[in-house]
Design a protein around this nucleic acid. Structure first.
Lengths: 205, 205
DNA sequence: TGACACTGTGACAAGGTGTCGTATATAATG
DNA sequence: CATTATATACGACACCTTGTCACAGTGTCA
């Protein structure tokens, strides 16, 4: 989290820093992104930067937190539209994420975020910042219609959510990487994987 | 891949470099690992290093390729022992990987590899080096007993494999991160997730 | 006004990477 | 064997990072 110092400086200065950061993270993968270039771009002195943020990761996750909120809105909206059907929700969210990746000016930023996402980062995004905001699991999961689902205990639903999340990220990456011809294939692939999860890997007796 | 130059230098010099590299990657996460320290450790001049490997990634994946071969052996062995039951195989492989993480002198190296694994790297490990060696999918997947499985077309099996693989990595990370008290919980969690995949998320009609 | 606490600043040390010109060894050829 | 060609070894160099720190500026409050 940025220091209170950062939150107290003029909004336009904040914006300027964040926008420079976003530009940098759009042009470079996380590891190559340079604080140097960011501070030059928005004319913020080195020392000041380290007064605001503890390091690159701190800045990065602060940027992500905004999009995390956005995606949660999309998730909630789609969960309602699908009457609590979690898999149909994922299907629709996937479509809408794909759309924004294609069209928005955020495209490059999102792409890099996804490509950079490793298991540690994913954990930080999902867990670390859970308490302070969002409340992703509770708020969302409580809206899920569990009647149709194969649920033993409370944990099961979270597990389902995690599995679905992972699969979606993976398929998004495939989508981003492949050439335009194959993009349609990826979508149908993803959907058929969802079907697989619905029915289960093993045949019923 | 290392250059032929590297493969032609004396074996002990190769070993020395690889062992220094492994030590470095054991002590540091990929991004912090330093070529500088590696070449100092084994007294190889800067210029020579870049004659052998194109960069850090090149070296890293070369190191990984050995372990990739090992894990494939474990997978094959366990697949046979389980008469082609893919989920039971994953369960057993998970146990044996956990054992080696706990006990071997490779422990730190493996931990870092797993924690660093992002989707791009995973892709490179799984796909990029597929043609030259291993043949992970064909050789392994052909041994899977598909009679019990909910399989439509050829692709389905690969999809199942990928989903299982992802889940396993995720659970491994949880295992690595948690304190010793909870380690048992992680194992049972993993197993119940596998059950979930078997039966499916949705109740049968 | 003086004391204190917070903020701004950029030079600096410490460390990283990849390259390139030169030295050296090894192979090939007349 | 001598000479030329080619591949390898080497390490100084240029250029890039990052995080810190001593110093300067600003503001508040007694």
């Amino acid at each position: 989290m940025p220091s209170s110092t950062f939150l107290n400086i003029p909004k336009d200065k904040q914006e300027s820093l964040l926008s420079a950061a976003k530009e940098e993270f759009s042009n470079e993968l996380y590891d190559n992104a340079s604080i140097n270039r960011i501070i030059k771009k928005c004319n913020i002195p080195r020392g000041s930067f380290y007064m605001y943020f503890s390091d690159k990761e701190d800045l990065y996750f602060y940027l992500l937190s905004f999009y995390k909120l956005k995606i949660q809105e999309v998730i909630l909206e789609n969960l309602k539209n699908n009457n609590g059907d979690i898999i149909n929700m994922f299907q629709d969210v996937f479509k809408s994420v794909v759309k924004s990746i294609e069209k928005e000016e955020n495209a490059k930023f999102f792409k890099n975020v996804i490509l950079n996402m490793n298991y540690l980062m994913e954990h930080k995004v999902l867990i670390k910042h859970r308490e302070d905001m969002s409340g992703f699991p509770k708020e969302v999961l409580s809206l899920v219609d569990t009647d149709k689902l194969n649920i033993k205990d409370e944990k099961t639903l979270t597990q389902m959510g995690n599995i679905l999340f992972m699969m979606s990220i993976h398929e998004l990456i495939e989508y981003i990487k492949c050439d335009n011809v194959k993009k349609e294939t990826i979508l149908t692939d993803y959907f058929s994987q969802l079907e697989l999860l619905k029915k289960g890997f093993y045949k019923g007796e």
